[in-house]
């Protein structure tokens, strides 16, 4: 499958990465190169093979329902690039 510039724009948009219009062709070419190489996987017969989700080494665990965290507002906000009082901020969102 070939990846066109429209697809590049769509992916960049989904990933929220700004791209310039004049970059799309180069990116498409580059990604096509990589995915062309990845296409070698077409040779592998995976019929009847279950997908591997994680390494399957750890034992499932659950935590107890106890409040052990929170109450660290200043730490949570300490790296905020912009804050007002105890809030993070973003450009105004109009719904």
């Amino acid at each position: 499958m070939s990846l066109d510039t429209a697809t590049v724009r769509r992916i960049a948009r989904l990933a929220r990465i700004g791209i310039e219009e004049n970059e799309t062709e180069g990116l498409a070419r580059e990604l096509n190169g990589i995915f062309g190489w990845i296409e070698q996987l077409d040779e592998v017969d995976v019929s009847g093979v279950a997908p591997m989700i994680g390494t399957g080494l750890a034992t499932p665990r659950m935590r107890e329902d106890v409040v052990t965290d929170g109450d660290r507002r200043d730490d949570v906000l300490s790296n905020a690039p912009d804050r007002v009082d105890a809030f993070f901020t973003v450009p105004k969102v109009v719904e």
């Binding site: 965290d69 929170g70 949570v76 906000l77 105890a86 809030f87």
Partner: peptide
């Protein structure tokens, strides 16, 4: 209804001063 959040130990209680029921996981 629970004491703590689904994946962190911060309080799940409604209300509270802004960003006080927040762990680094929740943020």
């Amino acid at each position: 209804i629970s004491q703590a959040k689904l994946f962190s130990g911060a309080s799940a209680t409604y209300g509270g001063a802004p960003n006080t029921h927040v762990s680094f996981i929740d943020a």
